[in-house]
Nucleic acid binder design. Structure first.
Length: 413
RNA sequence: GGGGGAAUGUCCCGAGCGGCAAAGGGGGCGGACUGUAAAUCCGCUGGCUACGCCUUCGCAGGUUCGAGUCCUGCUUCCCCCA
């Protein structure tokens, strides 16, 4: 569908060329509208964790391009909807978060958008709103009469988010069943008060978004549009962004710029081109040149991907530093002073040191890793589980501790 | 209301005659090979003051030298009948 359509607007053309588009409720209509003047679009972000993760980055990048092509983006924080909980793509009911937790998460999440979007009241400056502003004020009877009557249970039961739960015979509580109604109402609210006409999101949000488009029509707003991105997977089919230690977070205090750089550096060959288009803002001809590199030369493209993606999120300086740290560590086998560092006293056991820096989850786990020859002190493999950190291990005030080939930290006394 | 079935290693799926730290997958991590890639092969995957000790099979009791396995009660979920 997307392949035979050639967009004329800057916005859709950019998204199309870079591979962001999965489904759209009306390509031609939206394209036409994007050509005729400034549009307003939004993406909603629920506050279920204290940071967004890499899965949220695609939609944020769409907002970025939306603004770059002359339109006005809205980031909608789900301070209200998170109190209800989205059942889309989840097998079981998520525990309800307290209002305090949601607020804390919201404040912690907000920061990343400033890196990708320019906020401001004038022109196409981005806007940030919290849907708690209107959702918490809804009155039940009024809501049923004004909004609820536009929803057909018959239709709701056919939506994937609901249908999958029913088919698998898994609980779907009434509160979750209401989620799509609230999200639909958000769209109408934004359409009325901010002249918003487009909602974007991941492909799992299609049902929720299209419901909003329908609700808008029934409640008499201007024409609304839906646009979704493909699900992010690697070429070998694995879900993106899962590592042993958890998700790839966007907040620097939860996932360091160095780790973030490493995450992109380890991209599979087959994904390099696709990721350069999605997660960097390099021009397409430059990307085409990088993607054409064959064999081990593709590593150069991976370094560019890592540095550019990191720069976008954490700034150029942090990205360059991560690149330099990696170069010294991997290419020269040196000990870079900029590796992540930890303070541990002399005499600390090797096993507990590995636990302390996060290489192992327990002493037993550390013991197994040491015995299998995975642990090195200053690049020398140590298999003695009773080894302790000694004065002589310190080189220029630090010990380089390594787990496997890729994980390195510095230990200072 | 009646009848039948299910819950297993706190990542997931899933075997389990009364001797079980519990088969087998997936995932993850580590090793080999490479290019910090993929594919492939090998190892690890409850905890500890570690040739031993402790804690695990929905919950609580009981039988037994010994229970994930048998008995009783309870909780939750599913199916059939009304």
């Amino acid at each position: 569908m997307t392949s035979q359509f050639s967009p004329k607007s800057d916005f859709l053309r950019t998204l199309h060329e870079r591979g962001y588009i999965h489904q759209c409720s009306d390509f031609e209509g939206l394209d036409e509208k994007a050509r005729s003047g400034m549009l307003t679009a939004y993406v909603g972000y629920d506050c279920t964790a204290s940071s967004l993760h890499i899965g949220n980055l695609i939609s944020a990048m769409m907002l970025h391009w939306f603004q770059q092509t002359g339109h006005r983006p809205i980031t909608l924080m789900g301070g209200g909807t998170t109190r209800v909980g989205d059942p889309s793509g989840k097998d079981e009911t998520r525990k309800l978060l307290t209002v305090d937790q949601i607020e804390a998460n919201k404040n912690s999440i907000k920061g990343v958008f400033g890196k990708l979007l320019t906020y401001g009241a004038d022109g196409n400056g981005a806007i940030m709103i919290d849907n708690a502003e209107w959702l918490t004020k809804l009155n039940y009877i009024d809501m049923l009469r004004d909004i609820g009557r536009h929803f057909s249970i018959n239709r709701m039961l056919t939506m994937d988010s609901v249908k999958l739960r029913l088919e698998r015979e898994q609980e779907l509580s009434f509160i979750e069943f209401n989620y799509m109604i609230l999200q639909s109402y958000d769209f109408v609210e934004l359409a009325r008060n901010y002249n918003c006409s487009l909602q974007m999101g991941g492909s799992d949000q299609w049902g929720n978004i299209v419901n909003g488009v329908d609700l808008g029509r029934r409640m008499g707003t201007h024409q609304l549009y839906a646009l979704t991105t493909p699900l992010l997977t690697t070429a070998s089919g694995a879900k993106m962004g899962k590592t042993a230690s958890g998700a790839v977070w966007l907040n620097a205090d939860m996932f360091s710029p160095y780790d973030y750089w490493q995450f992109w550096r380890n991209t599979e060959d087959a994904d390099v081109g696709r990721f350069l288009k999605l997660f960097t803002i390099l021009p397409l001809d430059e990307i085409a040149r990088l993607t054409a590199l064959a064999g081990s030369e593709i590593n150069e493209a991976k370094k560019v991907l890592a540095t550019e993606a990191t720069a976008l999120l954490h700034g150029r300086a942090a990205a360059e530093e991560a690149a330099e740290t990696a170069r010294k560590t991997f290419e020269e086998g040196m000990t870079a002073e900029t590796l992540p560092s930890f303070n541990l006293p002399i005499g600390t056991g090797l096993l507990s040191a590995n636990v302390a820096v996060g290489f192992a989850t327990s002493n037993s786990n550390a013991r197994q890793l040491v015995e299998s020859g995975a642990v090195r002190i200053n690049d020398v493999v140590i298999t003695d589980t009773r080894r302790v950190l000694m004065e002589e291990d310190f080189r220029d005030g630090a010990i380089k501790l390594s787990m496997g080939k890729k994980k390195h930290v510095l230990i200072k006394a």
